[in-house]
Design a protein around this nucleic acid. Structure first.
Lengths: 233, 233
DNA sequence: TAGAATAAATATGTAGTACATATGTATTTG
DNA sequence: CAAATACATATGTACTACATATTTATTCTA
């Protein structure tokens, strides 16, 4: 109950505040009681008295859990354990304004990694309708002359790929990483695609997705993202 | 200042509590003032008075930011903006006890995706020392007869791969996903590797990493993880 | 008696005050 | 002038009171 269970970071046990300890105790309590999402938990005063602390301190600890989405409260209805939204918490702090360059770079790389690695899921789950959807996007893309619209459709193409992966978590994860991708793009000097001899377009990717294998697709995607991979050293 | 900036979820504007609004205001305030990590922010009382609310309510809003690791406070030293640890927040709520089966499955898949997609980074950054390190692990692995120790070394092998990727975020991410991987393993019926005709061992992976290409490695890794991929439908 | 209207009870949300505690600053002392 | 001491300050904790939303119980009405 003492050492390892400190939930947050590496705060030395010395300069831990009382609320930190309450948080630990609550964490253990929830775990030991095997609370499931939907289960009600005792009211603030009961918890405070049971732990021998003021309601104020208890509320602050509870606020932490509420912030993380582990419990929810409503007037008079008490509090219930909820299923936390893992990615939402991530999203709340993934702020380019606050993150350092190195972290941003690493998330940038992570996105490339996922883009490459998702191929197997695509081939497991792609349907004819999915491919048709990609086709429509590509058609709009080639037809469009507006630079901004082209960019939007580019994003939509990749977003659709994630959607085809059939994995909502990965799909959301990609969306969450978008701001970072945008932010990083400003630092990269992207040359026009025409300059690239062996550039793989969305059209080619779709063709591979239709007729090729997951390996083919990865090779194609790597070429498609070549300009980004070149930035990595 | 009103609608879109609600930080957390999708809570309708109607049943928003005052603290929710304070949180929104603070969020905008931090953003507009362009606070950077390390910058001090006004003290609780000043913020509370400036916003016309009690210190109690202000403290609760501030607690949320503290919980997310966006601000830090110390007695008498006031509060400062901090660089949030994106993955730590994720780690705090990634609890198999609370997550539903579908989400777990999706994170399980995400891990496979990353394992496949990380190949390019490996070939960009691998050093002779890295390969030597893998070799040592494999030697211990083949020498060991203890089942538990073998498992531990298996994990260490993959962890080392992430380390070689040179991406701390990805490395930590993988560690965070470990509990889920463990949890899911229980549901899978893993047959022994000897039964697999074309199983790719760690030894073979290392050989590929030495002599092959990123694409070779991905193909090898896919075979190595075949049993897990087979579970996906 | 059914059902609506009303009153009471309840748990969280907000406010205000007081004091504890740690930390930084100023002052005194040797 | 350094060390010790006193003081000021901002966050941490406690206690009390009341607001508010929601449920439960009660009363009134057709």
């Amino acid at each position: 109950m003492i050492q390892d269970s400190k939930i947050s970071g590496i705060k030395p046990i010395e300069n831990m505040t009382q609320v930190d300890r309450i948080e630990m105790n609550l964490h253990d309590y929830f775990r030991n009681e095997n609370f499931q999402p939907g289960d009600a938990i005792p009211k603030e005063l009961e918890l405070a008295e049971a732990m021998g602390v003021s309601r104020t301190a208890m509320r602050e600890a509870l606020t932490r859990f509420k912030t993380l989405g582990i419990i929810e409260s409503r007037k008079n209805r008490g509090m219930v354990i909820t299923q936390p939204d893992v990615l939402q918490n991530m999203n709340r702090v993934l702020n380019p304004q606050l993150l350092d360059q190195e972290t941003m770079q690493e998330f940038f790389e992570l996105r490339l990694v996922i883009e490459m690695g998702v191929a197997d899921l695509l081939y497991l789950r792609k349907t004819e309708a999915d491919l048709k959807k990609l086709e429509v996007i590509i058609e709009k893309e080639t037809a469009s002359t507006n630079k901004l619209e082209k960019l939007k459709l580019d994003i939509e193409f990749h977003a659709t790929l994630y959607q085809i992966s059939g994995n909502k978590t990965i799909e959301r994860f990609q969306k969450i990483l978008m701001p970072i991708f945008d932010y990083m793009k400003n630092d990269l000097h992207i040359r026009s695609q025409e300059e690239d001899e062996n550039y793989v377009s969305h059209k080619v990717l779709l063709k591979i997705l239709r007729e090729g294998t997951a390996e083919d697709f990865r090779l194609g995607m790597h070429k498609h993202l070549m300009q980004y991979f070149e930035q990595i050293k």
